[in-house]
């Protein structure tokens, strides 16, 4: 059994109003040292057997993330 974590965040050039709203809330709570927040998605996939890296990359880049606006990172851990 393997576990694959896929993190998806908006590309730096795409503005992130949700992250900005979180940043605003942090400022109101007094956390003035936080200068930027980018909000993303975090997927945890469990895979039977040894994961096929090419297949995982395809899943991440064609469904879990939209490459027009998002960057994606894969982290594989095997038990």
């Amino acid at each position: 059994m393997s576990r694959v974590v896929v993190d998806v965040v908006l590309k730096p050039e795409i503005s992130d109003p949700q992250g900005q709203a979180v940043l605003g809330a942090l400022g109101r709570l007094g956390h003035d040292s936080i200068t930027s927040v980018r909000q993303g998605k975090h997927f945890v996939l469990e895979v039977d057997g040894t994961p096929d890296e090419a297949e995982l990359k395809q899943i991440a880049e064609t469904l879990l993330a939209n490459p027009v606006i998002e960057d994606v990172e894969l982290h594989v851990t095997t038990d």
Binding site: L10, I14, S15, P17, Q18, A21, N66, V68, I69
Partner: peptide
């Protein structure tokens, strides 16, 4: 692509 409205 279409994303969250800038004013949310």
């Amino acid at each position: 692509a279409l994303t969250r409205n800038s004013h949310l």
